[in-house]
């Protein structure tokens, strides 16, 4: 580490910026498996990340078919609003919480944007960027999600501040069992512990 004197006379620590692929392994690495029992189910899910393409496709279809929003679905949703929405909490970078209701079938990326939550979505949900990275804060909810496909894992590889319960917001689709899910925007993990695990010290 070098130091430098700024114009205003203060001392600056000169470090290089370290979030790029060659150096970012530390950010992108999985946490080492934790020993405590409640982790087991989650570890299982993590080990299952490397799916065969056929299996992945199957899961993809399984997940998306029932919830795809056709015009008919939408009409139905409108008629039955109360029961067709789930409650979702986003926790932003400063730790501030925002509770929203998300119609079933909508992705967390769309939901965030409809509610002015600052979740990036550079590729607009086409699974080509990783900027919509969210962290599922409770393991029970993480385990309720279908495992990510190879394609989602390819993008998660590049997500900034990856954790064991990271997902892409555009791939998490509201469904009844996700009612009450809490999602953190990545930088938040630096400031406070997320339920169920401790953030890895960088």
């Amino acid at each position: 580490m070098k130091s430098a004197t700024g114009v205003a006379g203060y001392r600056l620590k000169v470090t290089s910026f370290t979030i790029f692929d060659s150096v970012c392994s530390q950010y992108l690495t999985f946490f080492s498996p934790l020993a405590s029992t409640p982790r087991r189910t989650c570890l299982h899910a993590v080990q299952n990340r490397f799916l065969l393409p056929q299996v992945a496709l199957h899961l993809f279809l399984q997940r998306h078919e029932p919830f795809s929003t056709t015009a008919a679905d939408k009409a139905q949703l409108e008629g039955n609003e109360e029961t067709k929405k789930i409650s979702v909490t986003f926790v932003d970078k400063d730790g501030d919480e925002k509770h929203i209701n998300v119609p079933i079938g909508m992705s967390m990326l769309e939901a965030a944007h409809e509610n002015d939550i600052e979740l990036e979505g550079a590729c607009e949900g086409s699974l080509a960027c990783s900027t919509c990275h969210v962290i599922v804060m409770d393991i029970e909810y993480y385990n309720k999600l279908e495992d990510p496909t190879d394609e989602e894992n390819d993008m998660l590889d590049l997500a900034f501040g990856l954790t064991e319960t990271s997902r892409l917001g555009c791939q998490v689709i509201a469904s009844p069992e996700l009612d009450g899910i809490r999602l953190a925007l990545p930088a938040a993990t630096r400031n406070f512990a997320v339920d169920g695990y401790k953030p890895k010290p960088h």
Partner: peptide
């Protein structure tokens, strides 16, 4: 120009 020629598009967001 700041970090050298590595990183994906999103890296520049954090940068």
């Amino acid at each position: 120009l700041k970090r050298g020629p590595t990183g994906i598009i999103a890296t520049n967001l954090y940068c």
